[in-house]
Computed example of a mutant assay.
Amino acid sequence: MINKQFCDLLAVFLVEIKKKFGITAKLLTDELNLSKNTLTNWKKGAYKPNGKLSKRFLNYLIQFKNEQYELISKDDTFYNLIEELIEVLYDELNSLLERSNSFDRNFEERRLKDRKKNFQKSFTNFIEFLSKVARLYDLEYENATSNYLKTRDYQKKEVFDNLLALKLINKNKRGTFSIQKNLAKLLNVSQAQISRWKKGIDYPSSTNFKKIGELCNFNSDAPLAVYEFKEENFESMFLKTPMLSYELRQFEYEYLEKIKLFIEKSGYNKILESKIKR
């Protein structure tokens, strides 16, 4: 790590390079494309160069040593000074790289941990959603509204129909529901695997994530893992025509309005009224 050693070496280097080669701190600052007081702050230890500037200064020293080798090699003290500076900068860059790799590893570990947690909760909520919809099918399919689903009328029926078509809420031969078994069959995995996902013991492979994504109409590389999906979030995933109910009601309204207008303009309204009164 760059410390007092770097500051001391830099101070001597600036004096020697000016004396031997006429390169002032100003010229060196321009050569390294540094701000006006950067070298001064490095020398005083006010702050140390970051990775980018450390690498820039290191490359400069290596190039300078190679280009001026004949002159520098005649002065062991100056040559050793440059070698020490190069070594200190190498150590700093290696230290920065190690810290960066450690940060990346920690970030990936936290990211994976969060995804596993989100998936476990989302997958559990998905199974709970399917279980509740399955139990409500016989009771609410023909109803206009539902005590659980947010959609109404045609849209509500469409959710039921799509889940049935996918064989997600179908009854088994005994007339009971086996949601996890249905899921296992659709995803081509064992029931034990479904159970492990639900309990958070296992995490899906990329292949299984793709299957889950296709099942839930996702494009994500890790569906249900990016954030936690609640039970109410799954309904829309199985609604292929979200505007169907609205469009049908709108059509019915416009159709009836046109019939009403036609009757009024044609004069049939009085005839109809008289027949209704009879």
Rank of each mutant, 00 (worst) to 15 (best):
E83D: 13
Y227H: 15
K157G: 10
L39T: 04
Q180C: 13
I276V: 02
K275H: 06
S122L: 10
S122T: 05
K121F: 06
E158K: 14
I86R: 07
L186S: 06
E84K: 11
S100G: 04
K65R: 14
L168E: 07
Y148C: 05
D221L: 11
A46K: 14
E128P: 02
T77G: 06
G175S: 04
R115G: 08
I82E: 02
S100I: 03
N217R: 14
P223S: 08
K65W: 00
Y203M: 10
R196E: 06
R196T: 13
L187T: 05
K52I: 04
S131Q: 15
T151V: 03
N170Q: 05
M1W: 12
S205D: 12
I17W: 03
K26D: 05
A192D: 08
S206I: 15
S266N: 06
K117I: 09
E214L: 02
M243P: 02
A144T: 10
E108C: 15
N170Y: 07
F126K: 01
Y79I: 02
F57M: 11
K52R: 08
N50S: 09
S102Y: 09
L244D: 02
F107W: 12
D91A: 13
L139H: 01
F107Q: 10
N217P: 09
Y47W: 14
S220E: 15
T38I: 00
Y79R: 04
Y141G: 02
N170I: 03
L97E: 08
Y253T: 09
I2P: 00
L71F: 08
F64Y: 11
S190E: 09
V226M: 13
K270C: 02
F126R: 07
R115L: 15
I179M: 10
T241K: 11
I72G: 00
Q5W: 03
L81V: 03
N269G: 04
N33W: 11
Y203N: 10
W42H: 03
I17C: 01
L139T: 13
S54F: 05
L85C: 03
L183K: 08
K44R: 12
I72H: 00
E108Q: 15
L28Q: 05
K199G: 06
R111D: 14
N101L: 15
R278K: 13
F123S: 08
E158C: 07
K18M: 01
G22C: 02
K198Y: 08
R278V: 07
N208Q: 10
Y268G: 04
E232S: 14
S274F: 07
N118Y: 13
K173S: 13
L248I: 11
A11Y: 01
V133P: 06
K230T: 06
V12Q: 00
E31C: 15
I194V: 14
